[in-house]
């Protein structure tokens, strides 16, 4: 494995009395695509959101490219600029056009001149197949298109790693593949990705590793092929039994 880009050491988090992350230790190498999978409430989304500190944690440490996650403030904002995030509910800025959504970060955070940011944004929108929608507002696009714009918005920051928090869960079935295709393309180009998803087809095609979580703990890690055909733990067998029988 390449030198780890993201390192989580003994990360613990509570929501009140609920211990949602228990001593999480995880290393993600440069260019690696890791799938976080697990039953509802297992902490997989929370873990994903903890990596760019949208969720705080109480103990342990998270480092990204050798830098430890700082406290809330300017330094954290700088670090977040290097970590792309794609949400289940897209979260495009509702009052800005598609083009403005993609150029906001580069212009405000990276201080890229507007013309240059727009040129690059158009290239990215072209790449995810929504360039002809650049002047529209998010509400005018379909869910699949919005999610592809969200991916372009993250890419515009040239992130070192991208986090995907159930990127296809809010989509109509016929729109899932258009988003997954873009993600598979990214994976092939060597983007480091952490993806919370139940899309096994995507896992098999693009991921190097599946991390199975249950009750806030990492129960099992394996290659997608190994995990889906021959899970080791009872918890994973039980979980796969439930999602594979249909």
């Amino acid at each position: 494995m390449a030198e780890p880009l993201v390192v989580l050491k003994d990360v613990n988090k509570h929501f009140g009395d609920l211990h949602v992350l228990k001593d999480i230790n995880l290393e993600i190498g440069k260019g690696e695509v890791v799938i976080l999978i697990g039953p509802s409430g297992s902490g997989k989304s929370t873990l994903c959101r903890t990596i760019n500190r949208l969720e705080t944690f109480e103990s342990g440490s998270i480092t990204i490219d050798g830098k430890e996650l700082p406290e809330e403030g300017k330094a954290l904002a700088e670090l977040r600029a290097d970590v792309g995030m794609v949400f289940q509910s897209f979260n495009l800025f509702a009052h800005k056009t598609i083009l403005e959504n993609v150029t906001l970060g580069p212009i405000k955070v990276r201080k890229v001149p507007k013309a240059q940011a727009e040129k690059r944004a158009m290239e990215l929108l072209e790449r995810v197949g929504v360039a002809h929608q650049a002047a529209k507002y998010p509400a005018q696009l379909s869910g699949g298109q919005q999610q592809r714009v969200a991916i372009a918005r993250s890419l515009a920051m040239d992130p070192k790693v991208m986090l995907f928090d159930e990127p296809t869960s809010a989509l109509d079935p016929e729109m899932i593949n258009e988003v997954l295709d873009v993600m598979i393309g990214l994976a092939r180009e060597g983007m480091t990705m952490v993806v919370v998803t139940h899309e096994m087809g995507f896992a098999r095609k693009a991921a190097q590793r599946v991390v199975f979580l249950a009750d806030g703990q990492i129960v099992e890690q394996a290659t997608p092929e190994e995990f889906f055909t021959n899970p080791k733990s009872d918890r994973a067998k039980d979980f796969l039994g439930k999602i594979l029988t249909h």
């Binding site: 290097d82 979260n91 906001l104 970060g105």
Partner: peptide, 23 residues
């Protein structure tokens, strides 16, 4: 304004002030 708007703003690296003013 849904909470996701602020999360998206922070996740592209905007500071608290920029998130407020821009989003």
């Amino acid at each position: 304004v849904p909470a996701g708007q602020a999360e998206a703003a922070r996740s592209i690296g905007l500071t608290f002030k920029q998130s407020l003013l821009e989003v």
